[in-house]
């Protein structure tokens, strides 16, 4: 095992529990930030709509929880279906792929996002699973792998086969080949 080589040539290593929990924590923070921004936006709109009668909105807990769940599901589904990596997975150098190495696709990404939001404890199975798969991964045949350089995503599923040589993974990761921002990853649908 070579710790400094996250993606050995010709193979892809699934990510472990620590990095995936960390990525999930980052994503939770991102969603919380989005909620705050949304709350401020709503309050701003309300203030400009009726400054004299303005009061800070006080949504109920249930409403807030529901909004957060919807926002998180939408956010994760969008990221996983397009680039395969949310901000948390990008930061930790991970990527969510289908078991065949291709993109998840919108249905599976949305389902996986909803399952992660509803049952986040399923992620803990990664620590026990010999193949480092969460409950969601097992149910939806997905996998989360190390992808520091952000080049694993292969649009054409027919070319994606685990164990097959991948041109972008020919050598160990180096600081000069660190991950690019998600915006620079191919986004063709």
């Amino acid at each position: 095992m070579t710790l400094s080589s996250p993606s050995p040539a010709g193979s892809i290593r699934p990510a472990g529990i620590v990095t995936r929990l960390a990525a999930a924590a980052v994503d939770v923070a991102v969603v919380a930030g989005m909620l705050l921004v949304g709350y401020a936006g709503v309050a701003g709109v309300m203030f400009f709509w009726s400054p004299y009668t303005f009061r800070w909105p006080t949504p109920s807990f249930i409403f807030s929880l529901f909004t957060a769940a919807v926002l998180a599901t939408a956010y994760l589904a969008l990221e996983w279906a397009t680039t395969g990596r949310s901000y948390g997975t990008f930061l930790l150098g991970l990527r969510v792929l289908g078991a065949d190495g291709g993109r998840l696709g919108w249905p599976r990404a949305t389902l996986r996002a909803a399952l992660c939001v509803v049952f986040p404890a399923g992620l803990l199975w990664v620590a026990i699973s010999p193949r480092r798969r969460s409950i969601q991964d097992i149910l939806l045949r997905s996998i989360v792998v190390y992808d520091w350089e952000g080049r694993i995503l292969i649009p054409d599923r027919r070319r994606a086969r685990f164990g097959a040589p991948l041109p972008a993974q020919a050598g160990p990761s180096t600081p000069s080949a660190l991950p690019q921002p998600p915006e620079e990853v191919e986004r063709d649908q």
Binding site: L3, P6, A15, G16, I17, V18, T19, A22, L91, G93
Partner: peptide
């Protein structure tokens, strides 16, 4: 650094 530490922690836990 975060990624390296995370991967090492993954392997240690595994």
């Amino acid at each position: 650094e975060v990624r390296t530490q995370g991967m090492q922690a993954d392997d240690a836990v595994a």
